[in-house]
Simulated assay, not measured.
Amino acid sequence: MKSNKGFTLIEVLIAAIILFSALALISDIFKSAMLSSNKTVASAKYNQVTPSAITAIKTNLRTAVKAKNITAVEGNVILFDIDYQWQANRIVFNSQPVGEFDDFAQRNRFSIYKVDVTAKFDNRERQFSFEVATW
């Protein structure tokens, strides 16, 4: 009687199919985890940088409209590869409150602007708005 030692071709093919299926599944899980991680990093960076960008936008707006009668201003701020494009439109233009004993009119110099911002980063866009008082 002849003793067979080793594996048949069918057994080797089945083992190879199982091995390659497991490797494909693991690589797909790893790819999904990396994509999720990259999205989380981009979102965290956006959330950390946005308050500084708002401060820069307010400063740019106040500098642009200081002692001028301007109804609309636009610009952009780039921080950490995030492009913040903004447009401000004046919604209120008033003078200082007049007391009952004041006999002279104050000139208009206080403004409130509504600022619309579009942030562009990693092939995505986010939009938000806020209001700024200037004088």
Rank of each mutant, 00 (worst) to 15 (best):
F93Q: 08
G75R: 02
N89V: 05
A88N: 02
I29H: 11
K31L: 15
A44N: 14
E74T: 03
K66V: 03
L35G: 01
K58P: 04
T118K: 00
Q96C: 12
N38L: 12
K114P: 05
F30I: 15
S32L: 13
S36Q: 10
S95P: 12
W86F: 15
D28V: 08
I54S: 09
Q85V: 02
N38G: 01
R109N: 13
V98A: 15
V98S: 15
F80L: 09
M34K: 14
A42D: 10
F93Y: 12
E100F: 12
R107G: 10
K68W: 04
A44T: 15
N76P: 01
K31P: 01
M34F: 15
K58F: 05
V92Q: 11
V41W: 02
N69R: 13
V115H: 09
A72Y: 06
Y84M: 01
Q106S: 09
A119T: 05
E74Y: 00
S52G: 10
F104L: 06
D81Y: 05
V98L: 15
Q96A: 14
V92A: 06
V41L: 12
V115E: 08
T71I: 07
T71S: 07
F80K: 10
K58G: 15
T40F: 01
K120S: 08
N47V: 08
V115I: 14
I91K: 11
D103G: 12
I91N: 04
A67M: 05
V92T: 13
A72C: 04
V73R: 03
K68Y: 06
F80M: 09
S36N: 14
Y46H: 08
S43Q: 05
Y113C: 08
T55E: 05
I82C: 01
I54N: 11
Y84C: 00
L25M: 14
K45D: 11
L61G: 05
V98K: 15
A53K: 12
A88D: 02
V117A: 09
S36G: 15
E74S: 10
R107A: 11
S52Q: 09
F30G: 15
F80H: 09
S111L: 01
I57Y: 10
V117M: 11
A33M: 06
A64Q: 09
K114A: 09
A72E: 07
D116P: 02
V41T: 09
K66G: 01
R109F: 06
M34W: 14
E74I: 00
Y113D: 06
Q85E: 01
K120F: 00
F110D: 13
A88Q: 00
T71W: 04
W86I: 01
A53W: 14
T59K: 15
T118V: 05
N108E: 04
R107C: 02
W86E: 00
I112V: 11
V117E: 12
I91G: 07
P97K: 13
M34G: 07
L79D: 04
L61R: 05
G75H: 03
F101N: 11
A33I: 01
I29N: 11
A88C: 03
K114L: 10
K114F: 10
A33D: 06
A105Y: 02
N108V: 02
S43E: 06
N76D: 07
N69P: 14
D116Y: 11
F101H: 08
F104H: 09
K31Q: 07
R62A: 08
